[in-house]
Design a binder for these strands. Structure first.
Lengths: 232, 232
DNA sequence: CGGTATCCACTACGATACTG
DNA sequence: CAGTATCGTAGTGGATACCG
């Protein structure tokens, strides 16, 4: 646990646990359904395993999570952190301006999209989407999403299956679509995103994914005043 | 601003700013109406002025607060942090178990109570409450709350006015009343708190204060399961 | 797969004193 | 009242290696 604030205020007591770096992102992962160490780790790839281990143990000691065999699961207290995470997401989507280039991690994007595939919208047969991000360094430029019989896998090397649809996009635009900042149709019309493949697949692909849970958060209007905040 | 998480997730972007130590407590103070440097400081007495200055400047740079002359005021983005602070308070009140002795700061308590006096409930004439916390070190044992013509002052030395009512209490119990963990009447009946003075004042004193905004938060029931978390 | 061990560089934080 | 200046320490992050 972090250092004490020496205050009886519930906000202070909550923050003693939650204001340590990474802690609420781990809770976010657990709320999203990740349970295993390396599963959580995929959601916080820049965190060292040592530190992740330490944080998970802190959450267990604090009574927020429990360890059952090799699974970390939230306790009732942990599940009740959802309103905190949601409130942070709402604020972040509304008031953080442009994302930095460094924030655009294609692996996290694909991992998120995989988690939100609408199973009943995808074709019955094996379907392979190739994502190409020409602006990204060659090593992370190509990603394959293999969907088959209700399961989906993310690959950063060619799995060898025939590609059904190819999506070529500026990474920033793809993230903006995912976050709900731009509708698919706008991005397609403006040419920011290109989909190649058989007509029916091309047309329905945008329905294969539920967008980020944050996509529907209303954005600030001029009435809210003040404008977007500083990007980093 | 804190170090980046290198993630496009809105929670991560929000936490880059908000997970630094003290930041959300300062926001809490600004949401409570504090505006001047030393006014904010009274709400975070264990924070060094250097760090407070740094944090306030970060909040201004981030677009969360503005500086107008010598006042720090929240921008629209800053005001929208209220749901975050509230969610943390709800969680803290429900899931942080017993408070540590170190968390019981009489000065913060009196400062909070002063901020929540129900002006139309206090007598018209000058009224002085003396709080005595016998379990606290002599230096912080006696506190005077001087209420007069809609204004109230907290003193830690005898202001010289005649005392109208004397409240003697275990500090922990007084904090528990303030947080809504124990009703006034229960504490009076159990003898944990004693009020001395003229009958009408003694009887109405509990109505002079609105309890902490967190007092009405429903506490976990057995149905919520899991029980309270570890105290520190 | 699910972690632990170790080392180093860095800087955030805490404590205290001081200033315009 | 509204902050700066300074210095010591502890925790974070990054790299890398290792283990059952």
């Amino acid at each position: 646990m972090g250092a004490s604030y020496y205050q009886f205020c519930p906000v202070a007591k909550a923050m003693e646990l939650l204001d340590e770096r990474w802690t609420l992102l781990i809770v976010r992962e657990l709320l999203s359904g990740s349970e295993h160490f390396n599963e959580v780790r995929r959601g916080v790839p820049r965190m060292s395993p040592t530190l992740l281990s330490k944080r998970l143990n802190q959450l267990v000691r604090a009574g927020v999570a429990e360890k059952k065999d090799d699974r970390y699961v939230l306790t009732p207290a942990g599940k009740e952190l959802r309103p905190v995470v949601d409130a942070l997401a709402v604020w972040g989507v509304r008031w953080i301006g442009e994302l930095g280039d460094q924030d655009l991690d294609p692996k996290l994007l694909l991992w998120d999209m995989r988690r939100n595939i609408t199973l009943d919208a995808i074709p019955d047969t094996r379907t392979v989407i190739l994502f190409v991000f020409p602006d990204v360094q060659p090593r992370n430029r190509h990603w394959w999403l293999v969907m088959n019989a209700g399961a989906a896998d993310v690959c950063d090397t060619d799995p060898g299956y025939e590609v059904s649809v190819t999506v070529t996009a500026d990474l920033r635009h793809m993230v903006r679509i995912w976050r709900g900042d731009t509708p698919w149709q706008d991005a397609l019309r403006s040419g920011a995103i290109d989909i190649q493949g058989p007509e029916p697949l091309r047309r329905t692909l945008p329905t294969w994914f539920a967008l980020s849970p944050f996509a529907t958060i209303p954005r600030p209007t001029v009435h809210d005043a003040g404008g977007a905040l500083q990007a980093r």
